[in-house]
Design a binder for these strands. Sequence first.
DNA 1: ATTAATACATAATATTCTTATGTATTAATT
DNA 2: AATTAATACATAAGAATATTATGTATTAAT
Lengths: 119, 119
Amino acid sequence: MYICPMYTSELIKGTLKTIILNLLKERGKMYGYEITQTVKEMTKGKIQITEGALYPTLHSLEKKGDVGFEKEYLGKRVRKYYTLTDQGEETAQAKVNEFADFINTMKYLLDLEPKMGNA
Amino acid sequence: MYICPMYTSELIKGTLKTIILNLLKERGKMYGYEITQTVKEMTKGKIQITEGALYPTLHSLEKKGDVGFEKEYLGKRVRKYYTLTDQGEETAQAKVNEFADFINTMKYLLDLEPKMGNA
DNA sequence: ATTAATACATAATATTCTTATGTATTAATT
DNA sequence: AATTAATACATAAGAATATTATGTATTAAT
């Protein structure tokens, strides 16, 4: 089995929203920096979300009504804790479902499995 | 199991080169239009490569030295049959390996599997 | 006292895709 | 016979999303 150190950026494109929404779904509430660190740890550094990608995405999710947030102060430092809205819960589930389906299709297309699921 | 009609475009971003290189690796030589139709059929319409995405990508792969081509004429109609170069063979294998690894990581991250492989 | 880590944000740039448009041949339909 | 659909290439304008760089500021570690 091949193990790579870090994925090329193009591979991660398009999965950022899915990752964020799913983490919020599983953990309830998280702040931006926490999301980057959690993903980095869980993937052993293979996926590193940059701040330039993260914050605009969070703002975009908020604008679309998938997440809300509340500020929390630790001394003078601020954290923005994000949570899923009801709509966000649905979006998160739909995104994960779609990605799971996508994996099956790609496995078939790239011949990574002998048989084809529902692709 | 959820089955979707067609993937959102963002999901497919970044996998186009991998798909093309792998198809060329498995089938030897293919022309552009053939690639779009093959992918469409193999994925039951879930992945439809547009011409605006395909041709620039093929030109880019050629410029980088991963593919070569030769023109073939059927009457007056032209086809450009693409084949992998030696370098392209390596690129194809590396891309597929990376994607296979990426699938494992994402499965773990999205909790689509109970255990973690090498992610 | 300096550096690293935490924590947010945005702007310029690059990449990559969608959508639209263009040309042209061949097959199928009416 | 004439029109439409399918085949087969190509490129340009625009949108979306990421990278890289920069900025501010607090707190912890060296």
